[in-house]
Design a protein around this nucleic acid. Sequence first.
DNA 1: ATGGTAGACCTTCTA
Length: 259
Amino acid sequence: MRVATWNVNSVNARLETVVRWFEEAQPDVACLQEIKCVDEKFPAEAFERLGYNLAIHGQKTYNGVAILSKTPLEDVRKGLPGDPTDEQARYLEAVISGPRPVRIASIYLPNGNPISTEKFDYKLAWMARLNAHAKDLLALEEPLALVGDYNVIPEARDAAHPEHWTKDALAQPESRAAFQALKWLGFTEAFMAVDGAPESYTFWDYQAGAWQRNNGIRIDHALLSPQAADLLTGCVIHKHVRGWEKPSDHVPVMIELNL
DNA sequence: ATGGTAGACCTTCTA
């Protein structure tokens, strides 16, 4: 089973590009982030035509996450538990039905910039809530994948120019520590388990010719429970998609599970 | 030190 994660930077502005990639890569499950629309504005027909079932947790203008699956989605949870006042659509969880069900979450972790503002506090509070919820999910002892745009550069090797990011929320020690703490609950980071090559980025800024200079960062991650890690056979970053017409600034990351 | 790009949407915010 192929499970992808992709921050599409507006599913409506990107529809042609996104459909092109779906037809090429044929994911069984795809988790999208930054759809940037309410549920009613999601171009559902385009994906239903390709044979997908949809779960959408949208929001006007900003954020928004979705899960598309070839098999029906069950036990859908919208929003990250832990703060009922949080109105940002950044978390969606569902169980992918099948002979061996897999629980999947589509995550759009807060950016957190600038770091001297409440935006960074919100990022760290959100990460604490994610870690608490992830701990509960691990206790279920089932195949589980938490995939998405984590907005965290885990290590210096995950940036072409680590020195550019020292004042950025994506590379702060607090951000990295929270991501490490999440992994240490018992997750396997799919990319590091399978490949782990340096200079393997998932995001290149639109500005300053970042793509042309390969000035990228690796911030889109797939974390697997032990029961899912046992099934892991591959993890590929679809870098070439960044060179297409009208690209997102992120590229898809695809994991393969043996089921 | 600045500005460079992209998307939603109404003027500026987010990234």
